[in-house]
């Protein structure tokens, strides 16, 4: 299977509104998931425009799925679903 692609928005708005807590998410991955996930810190994904600021921080999963108000816990759960679901 292809690895799960995680793009964490590290634009300053998302960083201020919670992405700072996700910077070390890779260390929190269970060992058996490590080679199945590809995590990248991105510059602003342009998702916080206009009145969407309250949804920050944003994470893009597999290029299309958008997670708003992302937290390390939410993200780990979703990664788990994608890996276990595919297995």
């Amino acid at each position: 299977m292809e690895s799960v692609k995680i793009e964490i928005c590290c634009g300053t708005a998302c960083y201020l509104l919670g992405a700072a807590n996700m910077m070390n998410i890779e260390d929190q991955l269970p060992a058996e998931w490590r080679d199945k996930v590809d995590i990248e810190a991105k510059t602003c994904l342009e998702l916080c425009e206009r009145d969407n600021l309250g949804g920050a921080p944003y994470v893009r999963i597999n290029g299309t799925e958008i997670m708003s108000q992302a937290t390390p816990e939410k993200l780990l759960t979703r990664i788990g679903e994608l890996i276990e679901g595919a297995a």
Partner: peptide
């Protein structure tokens, strides 16, 4: 730092870029 961050965020400036 929060207020500086807000200025950077408002002006779309990413420190890593």
């Amino acid at each position: 730092f929060e207020e500086l961050g807000a200025i950077l965020a408002g002006r779309k400036i990413d420190v890593i870029a």
